[in-house]
Structure formats: C-alpha cells, structure tokens
C-alpha cells in the first residue's frame, strides 16, 4: 500500500504515467481506470482499506487524482461528515463546442475554469484597488502604504531586478506582460493552497497555454528586434567560417536551434505544472497515510509533515511564479540579443 503511494508520487513527478481515471469522481461520466499503477495507488477510504493491499480492487477510492485533475463540479464546504465535509456543486455543461482541426474545444466551465475566474477576479480587484490607492496618495505627494505599498514593492522588484536587466534595452514594453504573467501565476498558485479550491496552474492545459502565449511573445519580440535577422535564429549560418564548413555546421545546428525554440516554452509549462502538482500529491499522500494505517495514533506525524509540505508549497507558489517570469524575461532577452 505504502509502496503504492511512493509509486504514485514517483509517477506524477516523472510526469510520465497516466493518472487519468477518477472512479468516484463527482463528474457525471465516470471514466474507466486503465492502469495497474493507478489501482495500486488509490488511497483507501473505509471501503478500500478493508481489502488486502495490492489487489485489483475497484472499490478503493482515489482521493488524489480528482484533487489534482480538472472536474465538472465545484467542492463547497459542508458540515456533513458523510460526504467528507463537502458538497458538490455541478457546473453547467453543454456550452458551445468548436473544433480547431481535430482538437475539440468545449467551452463549458470546469472546476479549474472557475478557479481561473476567481484568481483573475481577486488579482484584478487587488491590483486595481492598489492602483487607486497609489493615485490617491500620489495626488497628496505621498508614497503608498499598506497593501498598495506591498504591491508596489513586488512590482518594482520584478520590474527593476528581474525583467528589465534580463530583457535588455528598451525592455519597458514587456514589463506589463511579464508582470501580468507573474501575478496571474502567483494568484492561481496561492488559490490552489486554499481548502476546497483547485490549482489551475497544476493543470497542463493552463501552463501550456501560458507557455504558448509566452512563446509567441518571445518570437514576436525576436522578429521585431532583429527584423530580417530573425531568420538567423532559426537557420544557423556562421559568417566567419569557410563555405565548406558552413553548410554542414548549419545542417547540424539549425535543427537544434529550432528545437530549442520549442523546448524553452515546453520546459516552462512542464516545470510549473509538475511543481504545482507534485506538492499537492505529496500533501495528499501524507494525509492518506492516516487512512492507510487505520489509526488515529499515527495521525500526528503525517499531519505535521503535511503542514511542513504546505509551508514549502507556499514558498514554491512564489518561487514558480518568479521562475516562470524570470525565464520568460531571459528568453525574450536572449532572442532579442542574438546576432549570428
């Protein structure tokens, strides 16, 4: 049983195993489980724990997978212990669908969509009220205080110490985008630590989209900064070599250059996704130990560890938002500075 948890954590950290199915999920369609690792990894509730370890039991309830994946219902606080102190609020389905090629886009809201809305609303409210406070205080010729001051400190740190030095000359144009990315990711990360909420940035769709947008920003920044020279960032063409050397070198290096363009945002997406997911899995696995051992006596140790991991997660929430922004700045700076 314990090794099952380890395997689950390991699998999720490697980001290689399909942790797809959720058997008792609130979602209307109950997806089928398809992997042995998943069954072994399911955390036990009362029903599951009665079975012997390692059995191919479908009665075990997976508490981790629904938590780290998207769903079609919101979890809301409830005083009913029979349903785990939670009620499920089903989200509307059947919103318009459209296809981009063979890629289906269903605009029906999911749990993480709602989380995105909430985090965006919180962020916009905080930032706009901070800006209002700034204008009010600036009219009196005073520096801001309280929340506005804290926001200003973060904004100025990111702008002066992270974004501008890395993006390079005339980097001011990229400041709003990179600041938005930072605060958007940070808010979503922190919202994921709130009970009953979900981590939008712990989903590959969200991180991949953010990375894709960043990819476009990086490449457009490169095109605007280099003009025709942008082709030089795709096709490597060393001018200081004789022609008979240039061609083979170019043939070897160009694919690498091209691949690096795609690997950079991929790394951004995977890093953020894996970091946010891994922390939650570890916390849930530690809490799951209590149920696995079927003893209240064992509870303090895993809970203490879970609290420690939650504190670590708090730091990781800031760290990952910072790293995403830092690396985006570095990539934008790299492509703008590259002259082959």
């Amino acid at each position: 049983m314990k090794s099952g948890f380890l395997r689950l954590v390991l699998a999720a950290l490697c980001a290689a195993a399909p942790l797809a199915a959720q058997e008792h999920a609130p979602a209307p369609q109950a997806p089928a489980a398809d992997s042995a690792a998943l069954h072994a990894a399911t955390a036990g509730d009362e029903a599951g724990a009665q079975k012997t370890a390692g059995a191919e039991s479908t009665a075990k309830k997976d508490i981790i997978t629904p938590h780290i994946t998207d769903g079609n219902a919101l979890e809301l606080p409830s005083l009913n212990p029979d349903h785990g102190f939670a009620t499920h609020f089903a989200l509307p389905t059947g919103w318009p669908k459209f296809h981009i090629g063979s890629f289906e886009v269903d605009t029906s809201p999911t749990k993480l969509t709602v989380m995105l809305w909430i985090s965006a609303a919180i962020l916009i409210f905080l930032m706009v009220s901070a800006a209002r406070a700034h204008q009010r205080r600036a009219a009196q010729g005073l520096p801001p205080k309280g929340l506005a001051g804290a926001m200003e400190a973060m904004i100025l740190y990111m702008r002066n110490e992270v974004i501008l030095p890395n993006v390079g000359h005339h980097g001011e144009a990229f400041v709003p985008y990179l600041l938005s990315i930072f605060f958007f990711i940070l808010t979503a990360n922190l919202l994921g630590l709130v009970p009953y909420m979900g981590t939008a940035t712990g989903n590959i769709a969200v991180t991949a989209t953010l990375a894709l947008v960043t990819f476009l920003v990086i490449e457009i920044a490169g095109m605007r900064a280099l003009g025709k020279g942008y082709l030089g960032t795709i096709i490597y063409w060393p001018h200081d070599m004789p022609l008979y050397m240039r061609i083979p070198i170019s043939l070897i290096i160009s694919p690498v250059e091209l691949m690096s363009k795609f690997i950079k945002p991929t790394a951004l997406a995977i890093r953020l996704f894996a970091n946010m997911t891994a922390g939650h899995i570890v916390v849930l696995a530690l809490i799951g130990l209590v149920f696995t051992f079927q003893s209240y006596l064992i509870a303090p140790a895993p809970l203490a560890m879970a609290v420690a991991i939650m504190l670590l997660e708090l730091m990781v929430a800031f760290l990952q938002a910072f790293i995403f922004t830092l690396l985006s700045s570095v990539f934008i700076g790299l492509v703008r500075e590259s002259h082959h």
Partner: peptide
C-alpha cells in the same frame, strides 16, 4: 477515451486560460 491524462491538455481549459489571462493582462 473521455478520460484525460495528466499530460493531455483540455481544449476548453486552454480556451478559458487564453480568455481569462488575456482579460487580466488587458485590465491590469
């Protein structure tokens, strides 16, 4: 299959991410 792997991005969520992030970016 309707089941989604951890690494299989959902189109709807991507759509909403673009929309929500775009709006946030614009307003902020």
């Amino acid at each position: 299959a309707p089941a989604r792997g951890l690494l299989d991005p959902a189109g709807g969520l991507m759509f909403w991410t673009v929309l929500v992030f775009g709006t946030t970016f614009f307003i902020l």
